[in-house]
């Protein structure tokens, strides 16, 4: 029981991570692939933040009356990772838009067919 509760967060994170991974490798639509990466990325965020949690702790803002705080370092790493994640997602989506304009489709299979016939 303690193993189950103690690892519940990590296991769900792995399920989410694999959901994203599956979307990236099994779905031919490029927008869907980017969304898969987004799910994968968010699962990594949850993994880091879960590790930062201290039982009985509070948010790492120093205040009288509290002595136990959660670990602030993973919070910092993930905070910036979220913003960088948006920037890279936007770049990915911009590439998808350009692929749509060049090939007339965002379906990976159709793009391969067009490349082979050229």
């Amino acid at each position: 029981m303690s193993t189950l509760l103690g690892h519940y967060n990590y296991w769900i994170v792995i399920v989410l991570m694999m959901t994203g991974f599956y979307t990236v490798i099994a779905r031919p639509n490029l927008v869907k692939k980017i969304i898969g990466l987004f799910i994968f990325q968010t699962s990594v965020f949850i993994l880091f933040i879960s590790m930062a949690k201290v039982e009985g702790g509070t948010a790492p803002i120093i205040e009288e009356g509290y002595s136990l705080y959660s670990n602030p370092l993973p919070h910092v790493l993930i905070l910036t990772a979220i913003v960088v994640g948006l920037a890279t997602t936007a770049l990915g989506l911009a590439l998808v838009v350009r692929i749509q304009e060049a090939y007339g489709t965002t379906n990976e299979d159709d793009i391969h067919v067009q490349d082979e016939t050229d």
């Binding site: 927008v31 933040i49 930062a52 790492p60 959660s70 993973p74 979220i82 948006l86």
Partner: peptide
């Protein structure tokens, strides 16, 4: 999980701006 700063960022970016960018991409594809 006590990560209030991260939550604020995720709510503004993930639920806000990302959605708008995805909608714009879907509209163009």
């Amino acid at each position: 999980l006590d990560a209030v700063d991260v939550a604020l960022t995720e709510a503004a970016i993930g639920a806000g701006i990302s959605t708008i960018l995805l909608l714009a991409t879907v509209a163009l594809t």
